[in-house]
Amino acid sequence: MLLIACPWCGPRDEAEFHYGPEAHHDHPADPALLSDEEWGRYLFFHDNTHGPRAERCCHSAGCRRWFHTVRDTAHHEILAVHRIGEPKPETA
């Protein structure tokens, strides 16, 4: 059971959270301008990182805030969390 540090509520059990999609993979401003291939890239292509990966996370059972985590996919350790709009912190 991971302990995830909600940027507002502090450390809580992983069961209180819902994972979201890859972070910083935002919806294109005007999808109509994109080719099928470009749109397909947005929809279906994600970095399958082995190592630190930025993800969205929601403290669903708590304050219902979405935030970003940097999780190492090799062992699930959460290396950093930050609020939406804050810069992504440096991680080793």
Partner: peptide
């Protein structure tokens, strides 16, 4: 809903 409002 909250995801869109809070993130994008």
């Amino acid at each position: 809903m909250e995801q869109w409002l809070q993130t994008e």
